[in-house]
């Protein structure tokens, strides 16, 4: 566990891995479409959860923004902030809510400055969370979201809507 958590301090390695997975997912997208998103989600959800919890303390929001947030999970912020730190960070860089932990966004910023591929993503505005996506595979969500956009979904904030499982 400790070793896996330690990976977070090597954000460049993690972003390379993410890039690989992202490209891989593009390749398998037609296959996933044939299998069906609901079934693919059932298969992928648990392994994804185990791996991401071990490395990132993932909360399974189903809307992974790790590559835009210095490979640091913004859902571990007690206020669940997805667009940067609040104004309550303490003088010793710890969290307003939990003085026992370093501010998630202090870490996210520091790590993203060491990421050459996705590092500038920290300046992109992350839309409000879609709670319909929670507890499901983020990768499958991304793919089905893409399809929803292709179908001309009215509003990307609303996202893919309910996936009937």
């Amino acid at each position: 566990m400790g070793i896996l958590r330690g990976l977070r301090d090597h954000p460049h390695l993690l972003e390379l891995a993410y890039q690989l997975v992202e490209k891989g997912m593009e390749k398998v997208h037609p296959l996933v479409r044939r299998i069906g998103y609901a079934r693919a989600n059932r298969w992928l959800r648990s392994p994804e959860k185990i791996a991401k919890q071990a490395i990132f303390d993932c909360k399974m929001c189903g809307q992974c923004t790790l590559h835009f947030t210095g490979m640091t999970c913004p859902m571990t912020c007690p206020k669940n902030l997805r667009n940067g730190p609040c104004g309550g960070v303490r003088g010793d860089k710890t969290c307003e809510v939990d003085p026992g932990m370093l501010c998630v966004w202090v870490e996210a910023y520091e790590r993203s400055s060491r990421m050459s591929i996705y590092g500038s993503g920290i300046n992109e505005i992350q839309p409000p969370r879609n709670f319909l996506l929670a507890k499901r595979s983020a990768f499958i969500n991304i793919l089905s979201l893409k399809d929803a956009e292709l179908r001309g979904a009215r509003d990307s904030y609303v996202g893919i809507g309910r996936d009937r499982t």
Partner: peptide, 23 residues
């Protein structure tokens, strides 16, 4: 919005200001 020049991470605060302007 609020701007926070006095709290960490100091180097990121101007970028966050920019993000809020964008928003």
């Amino acid at each position: 919005g609020a701007d926070h020049p006095f709290v960490e991470p100091f180097d990121y605060r101007p970028q966050r200001l920019a993000k809020k302007i964008l928003a």
